[in-house]
Design a protein around this nucleic acid. Structure first.
Lengths: 232, 232
DNA sequence: TTCCCCAATTGATAAATATCAAGAAGATTT
DNA sequence: AAATCTTCTTGATATTTATCAATTGGGGAA
């Protein structure tokens, strides 16, 4: 399937300042494909052949080591993944699978590297994209390193709450099983962590979580913009 | 103190392909300073005013949250830190302190951003530098997420062993207290982890660690280039 | 050298997290 | 609607990790 017209891609900060010609070249080489849920898009260790964008749906980035597996991030429209591997012309450090029916844009790695070499504006956009990625991972690292599971959950709820317009409740963006893995815990412990947060006004009803006492939840969570604010 | 002559800086991949003029401008604005051990160079949350290079000595990058502190990395000559914060014109996500007497090169943030805008080669070098940083943090994250403390220690020992030319023993690059924090554990647990590794041929004599049975140590560690190989 | 401070170790205990097992609740298929 | 499958929850237990306390030991300062 070829790329007909994807204005939302052109509007990404990565491509917005790119020359018309370079962008056209990239899109000419690109593939737009629909995948069902639970399809592996790439495996860690594979050579980085494509740069990926989630146009619709949702993709899990995950990794395996020492007999364990963990989800590192969810990518939602319109987000890219594994840019760094492409630029280093190296292997993927993470695996990726669709977590629901998804529409994925794939740009061959060599075309991306060519555009990086030839288009100065694009090269600079990539710098800002990578800086953002880097800082996001540092935040994830600090979250995992310096907080307990209950604290991570509490902060995550507060973060979702902000992102959803602070209506007093939170709509979980995925199954609790996935959420648990993103938070670096088992599903069992996520259930228990929700239980621990009950005295802090947290009530779970399916995928909806009511935050009845933001004050005391924040006291427990100790939210920190240097970890929890995506914009910082 | 002004920068007289620092060929090792010019030779960094970040600067190697930069124009003579841009590099001269940067160095004219830069400061080269000597610090004793245990001096705070910057604090997380501060505005990113300088890009730093360790010319001699050693710097710890660390962070605080929820009443806990952790060392995220050691930077040794000639390494840079907090490039991403400079480019985003944002705040530092990590704090930095000298862990020994050190010579530090500091380049004002605005000069770095100016050079990034004006020098196309420099902009591309930054991309590769950031890609490397990003992948390094992802590896750290996977290490912490998917391995127990004993496994992290075992793999770290094997990594140092490789880096030091595989002489059958390892010279620890820092105090055990710092090493413990880098590995994401307490000093007490590091001691016990060394004890756990004794049956696998690991014998500690001060800062020297003899690896007497690489075979069985590797079986326990399950080293993985997608985490442990700095070059991947 | 002697003293002193701090790193390092060891033991006892507590907290956090994972694992195993079983049942309950939802969702999907037939 | 019934059957089936998976997620989610809860309990019991084990592992991992942290904390508190008490020494021990090594490196620098006077």
């Amino acid at each position: 399937m070829r790329v007909d017209d994807l204005p939302e891609i052109r509007q990404l900060s990565l491509f917005r300042s790119m020359s018309e010609a370079s962008f056209a070249d990239l899109m000419k080489a690109a593939y737009l494909q629909n995948f069902p849920a639970q399809v592996d898009l790439l495996n860690e260790g594979d050579n980085a052949d494509f740069l990926f964008f989630v146009v619709e749906g949702c993709v899990e980035l995950y990794a395996n080591a020492n007999g364990r597996e963990g989800v590192l991030a969810l990518v939602r429209p319109v987000g890219s993944f594994i840019l760094a591997a492409i630029l280093e012309d190296s292997v993927y450090l993470m695996s990726a699978r669709t977590s629901e029916k998804s529409r994925i844009l794939m740009i061959p790695a060599q075309n991306v590297r060519d555009a990086f070499e030839s288009d100065d504006r694009f090269a600079r956009s990539i710098v800002l994209e990578l800086s953002g990625y880097f800082r996001a991972v540092v935040k994830e690292y600090k979250d995992l390193r310096l907080r307990t599971g209950v604290e991570r959950l509490a902060n995550r709820l507060l973060k979702y709450h902000q992102a959803q317009g602070a209506p007093g409740f939170v709509e979980l963006p995925c199954d609790k099983k996935i959420l648990a893995s993103i938070l670096g815990m088992t599903p069992e412990n996520l259930s228990r962590a929700f239980g621990t947060l009950k005295p802090y006004g947290v009530d779970v009803v399916g995928k909806k979580v009511v935050l009845g006492d933001l004050e005391s939840l924040s006291v427990l969570a100790k939210p920190n913009p240097l970890i929890d604010d995506p914009a910082t």
